[in-house]
């Protein structure tokens, strides 16, 4: 209840940034939008033998998934908090930094998710795409749980990236490289099934498809109950690994924190 009230208070502060958030959202639309254009065009001469409703629903969902499931706090963590010292105000309060950052980040996702739903409705009307969703309520609930886990995974991953700034002075290049790798491996450019088979195999061994590709596929209804359950289990495992790693790395890094400029 107390944590919930903290969430609500944070939401107010972030609602102040709704215009800026809308601009970010529109920028993030660009990539899925281009891909959507490409796939609807090639639907006319369907040679690949893929179910195009699935593909176009996938890209439409990417509009939503890319903006709601992917956390983006690593730059703030590295530059504002660690390098410029804003971490001080979190460390002084009797509540974990991880939680406070989460409470702040999550609202951007909710806000952008709202824009995402509007965008999906508009786009699916323009392109005359009939959306293919999972219809069974049990599957839907499990798919949504998978989305929540995906966001937690992405958030913890970005926290981990951010706190590398305890050791590194220059983080920007690393973040950009990590972003490209993530986008490919999580299925943001091309659905995992269309990747070269060796790359698909590599991707499956990493946590990245569990951040976007699997939860979205679950929403479309690509999995059996067993498949869905194993995805949830693997997501939970990765989350555990990420969180423990975060705790360890943070514990080591915080000893190097110098609270510069504060």
């Amino acid at each position: 209840m107390r944590l919930f009230r903290i969430f609500l208070l944070h939401f107010q502060s972030i609602a102040q940034h709704r215009t800026r958030s809308l601009v970010w959202f529109l920028l993030s639309l660009f990539n899925p939008f281009m891909l959507l254009l490409f796939w609807t065009a090639s639907a006319k001469d369907n040679q690949l033998g893929i179910d195009l409703t699935v593909i176009s629903t996938y890209y439409l969902l990417l509009v939503l998934g890319g903006s709601t499931l992917m956390a983006h706090q690593e730059e703030d963590v590295a530059v504002m908090d660690i390098q410029k010292g804003a971490l001080v105000k979190y460390l002084l309060r009797p509540i974990p930094y991880y939680f406070m950052r989460f409470s702040e980040e999550m609202h951007y996702r909710i806000l952008q998710g709202g824009y995402g739903i509007v965008a999906i409705i508009i786009l699916s009307n323009i392109f005359q795409i009939s959306l293919k969703f999972v219809s069974d309520p049990l599957f839907l609930v499990l798919a949504l749980v998978s989305c929540v886990l995906a966001y937690l995974l992405s958030f913890t991953y970005k926290m981990l990236l951010g706190i590398l700034a305890f050791w590194l002075i220059e983080t920007r290049a690393i973040f950009e490289f990590a972003e490209v790798v993530t986008l490919i491996l999580c299925g943001f450019l091309v659905p995992l099934d269309l990747l070269p088979s060796w790359l698909k195999l590599v991707a499956q061994l990493t946590p990245f498809p569990y951040m976007i590709y699997y939860p979205l596929s679950a929403l479309i209804g690509q999995f059996s109950l067993y498949g869905l359950a194993s995805i949830l289990a693997i997501q939970a495992c990765w989350l555990g690994v990420f969180f423990l790693t975060y705790k360890l790395v943070f514990g080591a890094g915080i000893k190097r924190f110098t609270a510069v400029g504060q």
């Binding site: 208070l9 502060s13 102040q16 309060r93």
Partner: peptide
């Protein structure tokens, strides 16, 4: 961007 009161309320919870 918010009145100071909102921060006091946040600290009340924290």
């Amino acid at each position: 961007d918010l009145p100071a009161m909102e921060t006091f309320l946040l600290n009340k919870e924290i």
